[in-house]
Amino acid sequence: MSLARYIARRLLQAIPTLFILIVFMFILVRVLPGDPARLIAGLEATEEDVERIRVLLGLDRPLHEQFIDYLTDILRGDLGTSLKFETPVIEEILIRFPRTLELAIVAELLSIAIALPLGIISALKPFTKTGALATITSLLGSSMPIYWLGLILIYVFSVNMRLLPSFGYGTPAHIILPAFTLATLLMGNLVRITRASVLDALESNYIVTARAKGLSERIVIYRHALKNALIPIITISGLQLGALLGGAILTESVFAWPGIGLLLLDSIYSRDYPLIQGIIIFYAVILILINLIVDIAYAFIDPRVRISLWKSE
């Protein structure tokens, strides 16, 4: 079985992508307005101090030398030192990332748990009240602005009812509001995708065959239609999860959830270039991995994909 070879090949293919991203990041940070050396030195610093810091950071050297240094550091797993926290960027990321991961997974699972049944019901009973209710719920969910929904939830559950903490991280109770807020947004899309792919599967010719065999409607739907419908649903939820891992910036800031999204926001405010670059490269790696995992998950459901991905080699 060459699943391992397939994974190796995909990872190799990711190298050019990452390289282009790193070049792009490197250039972008250096053409942006704002001088990091001056920022670190502070407003009061003399011109000499700023110059000294610039030399210290290597910002005075030719660009290509800076780039080669930068690249070799990255290859060693060194993403530089945060200007603001004065700790290695990678450390900072590794502290924050698990929290974002936690929030993303809980939100995604919550959204799947709500969206899948809603989508299926609205596909199976398109012209009933339940079906309409599912459609309306999904529409409401996807059109609700996160900061608004977040604030309303805080107002109701934290301020009025005093049931849940309004911000921060720590106990399981802390995750309920931010996860629910995120899930509401994700759910809208997922309900629509689920509904569309179930309807699509039900229209397929193999469903006619299944019925012509005399199978009960329950088996026709569960074994034939839903399993086929799962394929696009997995893609969408995988991609959603990938997007969330980059940090749900709005949600994390509304609920002061100290994840990677909030870290990115902080680093942008304080022009902490090493940190910004580090987070973005980290995010790219995560996205590449998520895409790979989604493709493999795909292949386990759909034998045709298995062939086109790795068996044919």
Partner: peptide, 24 residues
């Protein structure tokens, strides 16, 4: 009707490529 389908009256369709479930 379900009891009759496939047992007393069966059917063969036009395009074998789309009338079989691709993932089973």
């Amino acid at each position: 009707m379900r009891e009759i389908r496939g047992r007393d009256i069966s059917m063969v369709f036009q395009d074998p490529n789309t009338y079989l479930n691709p993932i089973m």
